[in-house]
Every structure is written in C-alpha cells, then in structure tokens.
Design a protein around this nucleic acid. Structure first.
Lengths: 202, 202
DNA sequence: TGATGTATATTCACTGGTGAGTATACTTAT
DNA sequence: ATAAGTATACTCACCAGTGAATATACATCA
C-alpha cells in the first residue's frame, strides 16, 4: 500500500530526463520517451497531461539535486571563500569533461523555449537559477561581505557563462578561467569590505 | 533590369533569420520559411541543399554584423578601457529590453543543437565566439595589459553569461551587473600590469 | 533576324514518415 | 464490480525532402 504507482511514473521521468537532457526538448517525442521507459505513449498521457507538463516535471526533478550538488562542492572545498567559490567551477570542469555532458539543462531548455516565455518550464528554470543566486548571496552575507547581492550576481554570470561557453567550444578549460575570475572577484570584495570591525574573515 | 536574381536567395535568408532567431531552429519548418519569403519550399531547396545548410547560412549571415556591432560599441564609447568594455554590456542591456530580443542566436542555436556536435552551424558558432575573444585579446595586448588572453576569456564568460541569464530571467539588469564585473576585472588587470615601466595608465 | 539549345530559377503536387494527442477496450488488485 | 493503470489502434496535422514540369534569360548558329 501507499504504493499506488510504484513504477511507471518514475520510469517515465527517468527516461524523460535522459532524453530531454541529451537530445533537447523538441528533438524528443513522447514516443521516444515511452519506448525508453518501456511503456506506451498512452501511459505517459495518463501520468502527465501533456508534453509541456512532462518538460516542466523534468526540470522540477533536477532542481534540488543540482542545488544540492553546488552546495556540496562549495562546503566540502578546502581553503577560504575564494577557493570555495572556485571549487564549484572546478567541479563543473570535471563534469564537462564527461562525454555525455551537454551543458546546463535549465539553460538549454530556456534557450530552446525562448519563444514561449510563459511556458511552465521557463518559470521552473528561472526559479532554479534564482535559488542559486540567493544561496550565494546568503553565503556572502554570512561572512559580512559588502554588496553580497552584486557579488553573487557576478558569480552567477560567470557560472552561466561557463556553461554556455564550454558547450559552444566543447572546451572545459573555460570553467577554470571562470573560476579564476570568480575567485578574483570574491577576493576583491573581501579586501574592500570584510566589514564592520572584523577585518579578517579567515 | 540586369537583375537576374534580385531576390529569392536573400529573401529566404532574411526570412530564415527572423524565424530561426525568434522561434528557434527546430520550431521552424522550411514551409514556414518559404511562406514568409513568399516562395515555394522547392525554391528553398534549390538555393540550399538542406535545412541544416540553411541553418548554417543563417549563422554565417550574422557573424560579421554582430562582431562589427561589438567593435563599434567599444570604439565609440567614452572613457578608459574599463568603460569601453562596459559599454558593450550596456548596449546589450539596451538591446535586451526590446520585446523581440531573444538572446544570442549563436548561443541558442548551440544549445538547441548540442546533440549534434559536428553540425556545421556549431562550427560557425564556435568560430564566431572565438573571433570575438581574439579581438578582445588584441585590444588588451594593444595597451600592453598583462595576460590579455585570460582577461579576454573572463570578459567573454561574462558576456555569454549575460546573454543566458537575461534570457532565463527576462531581466536586462543582469547585463549591467556583468558590465560592472567586467570593468572591475579590466581595472584590476590595469593596476597589476599596465606594464613595463609605465605604472599609471590614467 | 530568328530558331533552337541550355542553364538558371521557380512552381505544383506529392511521398514517406513522424508528431501530439485521443477513443476505446482490456487487465488486475481490492 | 469498480477504479487505477495499461495497451491497441487510431486521427489529424505537419515536416523534410523529391519528381516532373514550367518559365525565363541568354547564347549560338543558320
């Protein structure tokens, strides 16, 4: 009991995740997904009311896992704040060197659905990116940096720039360059305003 | 007279430009393009051997105009080097506030065709971005900055980050944030190494 | 001059295939 | 038996690409 749908729906989502991420949204049909999930298209329509609905669910399913990963990379990194920020970029470089890497699913979906600004998946994507920015802002606030919002925004720009640029050039080295720029900006902010009374943040 | 082919091919390219940019590659059919160009689909196939071929031509047609625009924004801006770099971002903010703006066509195409790394359009896109990076590098070299390649790469990352982030959030303010980060990095590079002998760059 | 040939440019009508979404019926556990 | 879940088989629209024919321009030869 309490297991009204042990499988199907999860299998659909898993298949959708792999296919949407690796091939793109419009390049994948619900027939493809149904086949990969080992069920019928009609079953997909039983669990999701439309393709758009499934696309939204795909991004929702990636939201927390991705954020958790970023936080983990940050918190487990050695060194000071600049190093912790840079660690996120270094880990992205590692991911990007895997042959199946195809950029950021949120960014690619947003690019593909740019002609549908009201699409539910666009909202999920924007919310995801905003959560990341807010989390960074809070980390910077926690150590009393000046202008934590502006700094967080700069890091976010470098991160999404890294995703895009690596994808265009198929060259993960851009992540390291982004990491260098990011840690330089953090360091600069720390020197300017480690803040009110406490000159060292360690 | 003496106008054997005054139109067709150009009209196709113009239509492709508008539709591919505003709707995306896979969302647009050659029927759509033919209709917009006021000709028959077969005529499209007379001038372009396939849809992929037309997609490539679409990006090729944007390469020089875009680069020229960036150079113009840079060279016509008042102020020092940091201001000139920032000017590119400010102009992008202006563009991005137009309702028809849909991000960078090269980046969006790369995102959509990420599952076809060998696609001719991907090569055009990568070459375009590389040209921009090289041009920036040369500008930095011209004023004897240290590590001009690294700095150019940082600016490129911020620029593509701005394109992506603005698109996701539909908020052109990110371009200004990126411009601030960019000019800070340029300023920092100038202070470190305005170079050999001349400690002040003004 | 004019008839004919040839390359360029364009159209209409089509094919084979796939896409999103649905009508209907079957199955199985409670 | 009844409701959730799944399947078969379908509709209708669209799409990349093609076959065959036509129109136009220009050249060359008689």
């Amino acid at each position: 009991m309490s297991r009204p749908t042990p499988n199907a729906r999860d299998r659909i989502l898993t298949a959708a995740n792999k296919l949407f991420y690796s091939e793109g949204i419009r390049a994948v049909s619900l027939d493809n997904i149904a086949e990969k999930a080992g069920i019928t298209k009609k079953t997909v329509y039983y669990h999701f009311k439309s393709k758009d609905d499934l696309v939204e669910a795909y991004l929702v399913s990636r939201d927390q896992p991705n954020l958790t990963l970023y936080r983990k990379w940050f918190s487990e990194a050695d060194g000071g704040l600049p190093d912790k920020v840079a660690a996120i970029f270094l880990q992205i470089a590692v991911s990007a060197r895997h042959p199946k890497w195809k950029g950021c699913g949120f960014l690619r979906t947003a690019a593909e659905l740019a002609n549908m600004p009201g699409h539910p998946a666009m909202k999920v994507g924007a919310a995801h990116k905003k959560k990341f920015e807010i989390w960074l802002t809070e980390e910077f606030q926690a150590v009393d940096l000046e202008q934590p919002e502006a700094l967080a925004r700069h890091i976010v720009l470098l991160l999404d720039g890294a995703f895009s640029t690596i994808l265009v050039h198929r060259d993960a080295d851009y992540a390291e360059a982004a990491g260098n720029a990011a840690s330089a900006l953090v360091l600069c902010a720390m020197q300017k305003g480690p803040v009110s009374g406490k000159p060292s943040v360690k």
